[in-house]
Design a protein around this nucleic acid. Structure first.
Lengths: 211, 211
DNA sequence: ATTAAATTAAAACAAGTGTTTGAAATGGTT
DNA sequence: AACCATTTCAAACACTTGTTTTAATTTAAT
């Protein structure tokens, strides 16, 4: 029965991590929400740090391969895609997470936002190490969409794109509340994603300028 | 002589806050770096929370009015500016901070990034409350640059822009190191800013699409 | 020089953290 | 049923956190 306790911890942890961040979520809060004993976290995961890794890994293991597939399909159908098509290949993998777990998409992107801002580069390295192939494939697709850009431009704009995405998602809850109050139109994570794609695509494909 | 201790605390605090975030910077770390007694933080600022506010206020008090001036000058010279001109009005105010304090620009934008992701909306409200006028002026300028966009589009894209900016700056240290190692070209905060403007401007001015 | 206020200093406080311990309970296997 | 490994549990541990206290010291004004 160890698997039950383990997933109950993971399920409670990911919600709290997404909402309050990693540092501001205590193991006691996690275990009490999960209805398990405090010590079980260290028993099953070894440490809080490894619990965080496991929470992220669960999502990345389904998200990244899905992106890989989408990219492959895109390039097969459209050998020279434009920027918007490249970034659109993220949409289905993101929405897929909603089927894996309730609110999975929102939780994942918020976790990603938290991880990127809190872990001072550790998450970036972790992702690069474990999922580097797919990410390189994504970069190559971006190059196809904007062959006139220099490598350093690509580098920076991709990180700008990550920043836009990750930051928006980390604050998505607050932003959705403001938007709903100010514009009286209910929106959700999927809506934000569809608003993000044109912004990111246009930014990434913007002409370079003489400084 | 209270002012000396006070500014020494602020100077040490802003560097540590920018580097490690607010939650992960202890008062003991701040006071030992500042060479002052632990209790002096509570004596001079009341609490850690109010110290954080004071650190941010020092920068915002010079940054926001400078933006206001730039906007006023821009609109006087160019009543119908384009998006890039609007965002370019942020450059001088940002670089101005480098003259106020060593590395001021980098520290400020990193603080802003930390504050936005860690304070769960408090910083946004604080800024809106104390500097709402200038910010509304900026939004109006964006509307002038893209009158075809709906208000909700403006809202989202401005927050995307903030996200791009703030996240990039929060991770600017790591990104600069990677870029220098991979592309052998030394760069700095000013360089990033000049790379950011085209990206943000193009993203903010992107055509809306049928979802 | 004396006095009162402002500031600094060392120490302790109360609360919260992740982790470890050792015994109790539970599980499946023979 | 008896055994052993796995898992749960309550408690304590060691440590860090922001804050408060109380006394010592410095500063400024009379």
């Amino acid at each position: 029965m160890s698997v039950k306790t383990k997933t109950e911890i993971l399920d409670a942890a990911e919600i709290l991590f997404a909402e309050h961040g990693f540092a501001d979520t205590s193991l006691r809060s996690i275990t009490s929400h999960a209805g398990v004993n405090l010590a079980s976290v260290n028993y099953h995961f070894g440490s809080k740090k490894m619990l965080i890794q496991e929470v992220l890994r669960r999502y990345l293991d389904t998200f990244i391969p899905a992106v890989g597939n989408e990219l492959q399909m895109l390039l097969q159908a459209t050998p020279q895609p434009n920027m918007q098509q490249v970034f659109r290949s993220l949409i289905q993998p993101l929405l897929l997470l909603n089927k894996t777990r309730p609110d999975g998409t929102a939780i994942f992107v918020r976790l990603l936002g938290r991880g990127y801002s809190e872990s001072q580069g550790h998450l970036r390295k972790y992702i690069m190490f474990h999922y580097g192939d797919v990410l390189k494939g994504f970069v190559e697709a971006v190059v196809l969409a904007a062959p006139e850009l220099e490598p350093s431009d690509i580098f920076w704009r991709l990180h700008f794109a990550i920043g836009t995405f990750v930051f928006t998602m980390a604050s998505s809850k607050a932003l959705l509340e403001i938007a709903e109050a100010d514009y009286q139109q209910a929106e959700d994570i999927e809506g934000i994603i569809h608003r993000l794609i044109p912004y990111i695509s246009a930014g990434a494909a913007a002409p370079t300028v003489n400084i």
